[in-house]
Design a binder for these strands. Structure first.
Length: 119
DNA sequence: CTGATGACTATAG
DNA sequence: CCTATAGCCATCA
């Protein structure tokens, strides 16, 4: 699997995160079929093409914190987008227990199945 | 090839 | 809560 395919797979996975829910970088990586690939998820997001429709703001650190430095432009933008879809952000943090995305069994099985074909 | 980097994570103090 | 540390791993210079 090359760099481009991996990034596309990550972006696709993030597109599946429903409005009003969130996921951690590590969770996105696992679902995308890239174990221990949290940093690669960060890399893929950093390289989003212009005009994308990827809901990047629904991806947070495992602790529920926004990855951008507090007060930075990205931080403010992400916080704003989360609040817009009713996800509470208190002190730069989201309650993961409450908002964590829980994929259907369908997605958990179907997605990895696609990954196997491309090895 | 080698070392530095980072939208990460878990653990310890 | 915060800093430090150690793993992690694809990219990049």
């Amino acid at each position: 699997m090359d760099r481009s395919a991996r990034m596309h797979r990550i972006w696709e996975t993030i597109r599946d995160i429903p409005e009003g829910t969130v996921a951690s970088y590590g969770q996105v990586a696992e679902i995308a079929g890239i174990p221990r690939g949290a940093r690669q998820v960060g890399y893929a997001l950093r390289n989003l093409p212009a005009g994308h429709d990827v809901p990047w703001h629904r991806v947070l650190q495992a602790s529920g914190r926004i990855a951008f430095p507090k007060g930075s432009r990205g931080y403010r933008e992400q916080r704003k987008r989360l609040l817009e879809e009713n996800v509470a952000v208190l002190s730069g943090r989201v309650d993961m227990q409450k908002y964590r995305w829980q994929p259907d069994l369908d997605e958990l099985l179907w997605k990895p199945a696609l990954a196997w074909d491309e090895e």
